[in-house]
Design a protein around this nucleic acid. Structure first.
Length: 139
DNA sequence: GCCAACGTTGGC
DNA sequence: GCCAACGTTGGC
């Protein structure tokens, strides 16, 4: 099992939107970056990920699960862009903010901190556990 | 709203 | 294959 982080601007696609899709989930479309796409190619059914709100909120707000492995992005004209489907699993009791993450020495090496622009990224098991704990959410 | 960081594109 | 120009993202 690998852990991931999916970043979204809440004004474009929020946790609320994601949760409304229910168990069926939704395509994580719109990624136009090779690094991010390559991570999606590595994802397996059942992998878990954090759902992060960028921009004004800047916080991890929930946990999602990969419910379809990589396939062409239906919204792209160019066949090189692919994506997975994800579904909402549970919302954090307490969102974990970027400030909190930056302040925690265990999380200083997170891609979220080191490369803030990458929209799909891997999360280490220790980082996963720490953030779940901070969010008072079961891993 | 600005700007730094980064990725992509295209001319040479 | 290099690099300048440009576009985009996201934190502040």
């Amino acid at each position: 099992m690998t852990y991931w982080l999916f970043k979204s601007e809440p004004s474009t696609w929020s946790w609320q939107n994601q949760a409304e899709k229910g168990a069926e989930g939704e395509e994580w479309d719109g990624v136009r970056n090779y690094q991010a796409r390559n991570f999606m190619r590595e994802m397996k059914l059942g992998d878990l990920g954090f759902f992060y709100h960028s921009q004004s909120e800047k916080a991890v707000v929930g946990i999602v699960e990969v419910c379809a492995e990589v396939h062409p992005d239906s919204k792209a004209d160019d066949p090189r862009w692919e994506c997975v489907d994800i579904r909402a699993v549970r919302q954090f009791t307490q969102p974990v903010t970027l400030d909190q993450i930056k302040a925690d020495p265990r999380l200083g090496e997170m891609v979220l901190v080191k490369n803030s622009r990458l929209s799909v990224q891997p999360v280490l098991p220790d980082e996963w556990a720490a953030i779940c704990e901070m969010g008072q959410t079961q891993p």
